[in-house]
Amino acid sequence: MAEYSDKELIELYRNGGNPHYAFNMIVARYQERLYWHIRKMVISHDDADDVLQNTLVKTWHGLPTFRSDSQLFTWIYRIATNEALTFLAQKKRRFFIPMVDVEKKLSETLESDPYFSGDEIQLKLQKAILTLPEKQRLVFNMKYFEEMKYEEMSEILGTSVGALKASYHHAVKKIEAYFHEEIPELFVNEN
């Protein structure tokens, strides 16, 4: 398979005579990154699969009006982020889950998820991340796990770099506080 750039793929989609072929190549290129981005937000595999498919369907419908002045991946990532946040909001509304119980519910999902193979520490880290508000969780995941640049994150989330840095700083503080509370013996030497 020929290796096309994003711009070439968009060109192929628009004028190549076979938009499905071009779209399939876009999906194949970005599906994994998108999936993991979504999965870390919605936790369950089944939910992540639904959100990923919705994201890709919306990408297909949005491609004819996509402006080439922004990066293709940034644009699809933004769709995925919005879809994940919308999904979580709908879930809260559908099951009448109060905000404080969302973290608990997602933690339970994590523990019972057959597709989570993390050890105790991984589980603790994920649970600590789940205590963060959704937007902060998003920022933390993108910076810590996906190692994204703040500029790139800013473009995806539509937030200033300064605000993102502050958000990440708060997230780290909260995770530290969580570990302080959960495993206080680890911090005995600090005091």
Partner: peptide, 29 residues
Amino acid sequence: NKPNWEQLRKDNPFQVPDHYFDGVVSRVA
């Protein structure tokens, strides 16, 4: 706990069903 903490950040504790990514394109199509 003695886990392999060096890989903690890189290691992904989440998994997907076997060959999950092979079928995404066709499911979306």
